[in-house]
């Protein structure tokens, strides 16, 4: 006994995305968890910097304008698209987590809900990115 695994319940049917040997077998549940952590850590460190740079409004108009000018160069402009993408994903996935915690029905469709989150992120970023990139790269 004990040498072989004898499951009493059938294993959940793995999706096509399964990557054998990784934690949680590489399904949607693992990727939403990983992306939630990574996006959260990224947003946290940006938040620390953003409170400090905004605090320069109390120093002088020149000091604030100098630091905010760094946000206007094209490389930072692309970084802002990534940052807003991280915020939008973290927000939508957070709402998915609340739904899965609160409603048993959401638990049963958690795999679909992950793809709903990805779809909402794509739609919201399609709304944000053209305007923002036009502001970053356009005439001003």
């Amino acid at each position: 006994m004990a040498s072989s695994r004898t499951p009493t319940l059938a294993d959940p049917k793995p999706s096509r995305l399964r990557i054998a040997g990784t934690l949680y077998r590489g399904n949607e549940g693992m990727w939403s968890w990983v992306l939630h952590r990574i996006s959260g850590i990224g947003i946290y460190f940006f938040l620390l910097v953003h409170v400090l740079d905004t605090s320069l409004i109390r120093v002088s108009p020149e000091a604030y304008n100098a630091v905010i000018a760094t946000y206007k160069n094209p490389i930072m402009g692309l970084g802002e698209v990534a940052l807003v993408g991280a915020v939008v994903f973290h927000a939508m996935n957070g709402l998915r987590i609340i739904a899965v915690d609160a409603f048993p029905a959401a638990t049963r469709i958690q795999r679909i809900l992950f793809w709903v989150v990805i779809g909402l992120v794509i739609v919201l970023m399609a709304g944000f990115t053209p305007t923002h990139l036009a502001n970053v790269f356009g005439e001003h």
Binding site: I57, P61, Y64, I68, Y71, K72, T131, H132, N135, V136
Partner: peptide, 14 residues
């Protein structure tokens, strides 16, 4: 970033 004309370019002390 979206409703303010100029978005990121318009953000300054004023």
């Amino acid at each position: 970033l979206l409703f303010t004309p100029g978005g990121i370019q318009a953000i300054d002390f004023g």
